[in-house]
Amino acid sequence: METKEAHAENPKKNMLTLFYQFRELGLLFFIILLCIGVQIRNPSFLTGENILDLATNTSILVILSLGMMIVLITRGIDLSIGAVIALSGMLTAQLVAANPSINPLLCLLFGTVIGAVCGMVIGLLIARVGLLPIIATLALMNIFRGLTFLVSDGEWVSSYQMSDGFVALAGGSFLGINHLIWIAVFFCLVFFYFLNYTRTGRQIYAVGSNPQSAAVSGIKQGRVLLLVYTIMGGLSGLCGVLWVSKFASAQGDTASGYELTVIAACILGGVSIAGGSGKLAGVLLGAILLGILNNALPLLNVSPFWQNGIQGFIILLAVIVNAIVKRRVDRTHLLRRAG
């Protein structure tokens, strides 16, 4: 009797399972719908220029989302990245202001190292001392932000203090495509390889999926956590340099609250806060969706003051829909096992 019922419901449930397995496709579908909608309202949306513009503006979000994804996969969270961006951006900008002739690539390296050190501190507190990620990163967000104000003494570093070479880091283009896009593509490829084809990459998933069995399998969890937060910090540091170069100014409150946008992109992309799961394609689409919203809302003459509210609403809606679908899928698995 039980099997009969299960069979009767099967086709629908299987559709759901399918949807869940290929939820990236669902997201893509939604993005396409959104694009069509926007295009109908404003034909200047899908022009080559605007698309490149959109991609340039989304690149930093994509890079940061990759880092946040691996943090979330290990069941962690990093709220400090906005502050790390500001700190590394400010220090790099000061470096450039003091030595205008410095090689821009050296600046990138400098910022990345600063970020990686910040990330390593967080990683040590979480992996070695055993603090909760949310508490540790909340506290360090404050400290990094405070340091930024201290080193800058509340002053801005503005565009006239920056060398042309430095501004060209994020402003220049190669083959007609902005450097930022190239950098984002580069990191996507690196992460794809890292997560799918290296042992360490898979260990990140293992630690998040089941910490107890990871311990039994002999995976060194502390090292994985330390690595993950250091990578996140390094990426934030790098993005700090790009950010300052792109907007041609470094301020104490640069990227304030940006961590929320990054986390939102990951969650939209289907990364589970409970750890263990998350795909690069999903995160990429999540970041692109947010990028499109940011780009399209002004084109649709939506007041900028609505953007926060709309973003918050979409995030909540996405996580709730995701949770509901996942519940139904789990139930299907349960039924299949029972039957």
């Binding site: 969270i77 007041s303 609505w306 973003q311 918050g312 609403f313 995030i315």
Partner: peptide, 28 residues
């Protein structure tokens, strides 16, 4: 109702949402 989301994510979302509504009401 959505225990799998955890309080962090829920309040993160509402944090953006509530302030967003405040901006919608009063703009700048």
């Amino acid at each position: 109702k959505f225990k799998e989301l955890s309080a962090v994510i829920v309040t993160l979302g509402t944090m953006i949402l509530y302030r967003g509504i405040a901006y919608i009401i009063l703009e700048d």
